[in-house]
Amino acid sequence: MTDIITFFSHLGIDEKELDQFLKFLKLKTFKSGETILQNGQTDHYLSFLKSGIIRYFVNNDGKELTFDFIFPNSFFCHYDTFYSRKPTQFNSEALTDVEMYSIHVDDLTSLFQTCNYAKDLSRIAVEKLLEKKVKRELSLLTQSPKERYLNLLKEQPKLLQNIPQKYLATYLGIVPETLSRIRKRIS
């Protein structure tokens, strides 16, 4: 759990304060290709990705469209369902073997009542998820597919090799052939 402790310590929360929170965390694992949550299910966990890559996607007229990737040292949840408690409208799957620390929504809610800093932890998670979402939306509006690819390559160079080209292409809003041309031009 040193990775999650390090993450929060960089945000000014020390290990002693995290103690009660850490007791509720469960290590969950998923094999590459395994579905984590499907459209229509409800997410009951807020998770912190220890290792692996997760893909968010929707099915649109029989085509899978990838709209986000979750990389290690990031929060993971189906935000459309975790807070509203309504069924999710998208899917998530492990692109590689995944390990994550998860806390059930009921445990998090009980922590809110007993720990002053628990709301801070939840707020930080929500802020990080929102920050990532806004960054993604702005990149779609203001950058070319090539610029989006180069930014992703800069942020996650080693992990990007583990993402199949067809998923990466839909994430960038292009077809796989266009991604191949972009890769050829920059190599």
Results as ranks from 00 to 15, higher is better:
residue 51 S to V: 15
residue 51 S to L: 07
residue 52 G to I: 07
residue 53 I to F: 11
residue 53 I to A: 05
residue 54 I to K: 09
residue 56 Y to L: 11
residue 56 Y to A: 04
residue 56 Y to H: 12
residue 56 Y to Q: 11
residue 57 F to C: 04
residue 57 F to P: 12
residue 57 F to R: 07
residue 57 F to Y: 15
residue 57 F to L: 03
residue 57 F to N: 06
residue 58 V to Y: 06
residue 60 N to W: 15
residue 60 N to V: 13
residue 60 N to F: 14
residue 61 D to V: 10
residue 61 D to I: 03
residue 61 D to G: 10
residue 62 G to I: 08
residue 63 K to Y: 14
residue 63 K to I: 07
residue 64 E to R: 15
residue 64 E to Q: 10
residue 64 E to W: 12
residue 64 E to C: 10
residue 64 E to M: 06
residue 65 L to R: 00
residue 65 L to C: 05
residue 67 F to T: 02
residue 67 F to Q: 14
residue 68 D to W: 00
residue 68 D to T: 03
residue 68 D to P: 00
residue 68 D to N: 04
residue 69 F to P: 07
residue 69 F to A: 00
residue 70 I to E: 04
residue 71 F to L: 01
residue 72 P to V: 03
residue 72 P to W: 08
residue 72 P to T: 12
residue 73 N to F: 04
residue 73 N to M: 04
residue 74 S to W: 10
residue 74 S to T: 13
residue 75 F to K: 07
residue 76 F to S: 06
residue 77 C to E: 15
residue 77 C to F: 09
residue 78 H to I: 03
residue 79 Y to F: 15
residue 79 Y to A: 14
residue 80 D to P: 07
residue 80 D to L: 05
residue 81 T to K: 12
residue 82 F to V: 03
residue 82 F to R: 12
residue 82 F to S: 14
residue 83 Y to F: 14
residue 83 Y to V: 00
residue 83 Y to S: 08
residue 83 Y to G: 05
residue 85 R to P: 01
residue 85 R to C: 00
residue 85 R to A: 06
residue 86 K to G: 02
residue 87 P to F: 03
residue 88 T to P: 09
residue 89 Q to S: 13
residue 89 Q to I: 03
residue 90 F to C: 09
residue 91 N to I: 09
residue 92 S to Y: 03
residue 93 E to Q: 12
residue 94 A to E: 04
residue 94 A to K: 00
residue 95 L to M: 11
residue 96 T to C: 14
residue 96 T to L: 06
residue 97 D to E: 14
residue 97 D to C: 00
residue 97 D to T: 01
residue 97 D to W: 01
residue 98 V to G: 15
residue 98 V to Q: 11
residue 99 E to Q: 05
residue 100 M to H: 02
residue 100 M to R: 14
residue 100 M to I: 06
residue 101 Y to S: 08
residue 101 Y to V: 00
residue 101 Y to M: 05
residue 101 Y to A: 10
residue 101 Y to T: 01
residue 102 S to Q: 08
residue 102 S to I: 09
residue 102 S to D: 11
residue 102 S to K: 08
residue 102 S to E: 07
residue 104 H to M: 08
residue 104 H to L: 01
residue 104 H to V: 02
residue 105 V to I: 12
residue 106 D to G: 06
residue 106 D to R: 08
residue 106 D to V: 04
residue 107 D to N: 02
residue 107 D to Q: 02
residue 108 L to V: 02
residue 109 T to W: 04
residue 110 S to M: 02
residue 110 S to R: 05
residue 110 S to V: 04
residue 111 L to H: 13
residue 111 L to T: 06
residue 111 L to R: 13
residue 111 L to N: 06
residue 112 F to S: 13
residue 112 F to E: 07
